[in-house]
Amino acid sequence: MLRKYIIFGILVLLSGLQCLSPGFAELTGEQIIARVDDLWPKTGKFTITVTMLRPGKDDRTSKMQVFFKGAAQTMARYLEPAEEKGQGYLRLGDDIWFFLPNANKSIRTSARQSMQGSDLSNEDILKHRLSEDYDAKMIGNEMVDGQSNFILELTAKRPAVAYGILKYWVRKAEFLPSKTECYGVSGKMIKTITYSWLKESSGLIRPVRMEITSGIRKGYKTIVNFTDVDYDTEIPDAVFTKMYLEKGR
């Protein structure tokens, strides 16, 4: 009988220790979001193919090349279709410009504007790290597709960001985001984003696919496929200038 009590006591102690060990229980929302952000390399480039799916209509596809450096610098330029070729975005911190080749002019735009009528907002492509823009709070745990996930609530730190609140699922095993629900300041759900990633042996994150489902319009969906991901090429600072946006190649 005593032995049973001792074993039970040890088990309770062990489970208690597990809770206190440097595992997940100690991690705060801020630490988790920082770990996710750390998976992105310092600089790199990739190509995205954006496919818009609309009920009863033909799919529409566009292609963009995206360069990024650090948390603050992103350049994205349309390669296809012909009508949009040459248009592009430059993001420097909270400032975003959109270049119109026909007018030969860059105009300021905002993080929450839709990218050419798709379900993507500018922020979805031009920002990869969230910790600088959102306060994170852990609100629970959930199994998604057989994997254990943290659920975080991210609240906008300032009005320049695209969403008021994000509900953010992060896979515990790899600290990879698996799903985001995006809400406006009013609390209305705008869209849901699901992600597919590959984690490289170096520990860096390699995006494969994003699927954006509109919460406003039924049946509206946008698929983003990532190709030509390159983290080995150092992207020069000159790429992240208005001169490159307007005239660079």
Binding site: A103, N104, K105, P236, A238, T241, M243, K247, G248, R249
Partner: peptide, 16 residues
Amino acid sequence: QLSPNSFLRTGRQKIS
């Protein structure tokens, strides 16, 4: 493109 930070365009062009 003279260098990463300097650029020259000559001819008939749109100035905005």
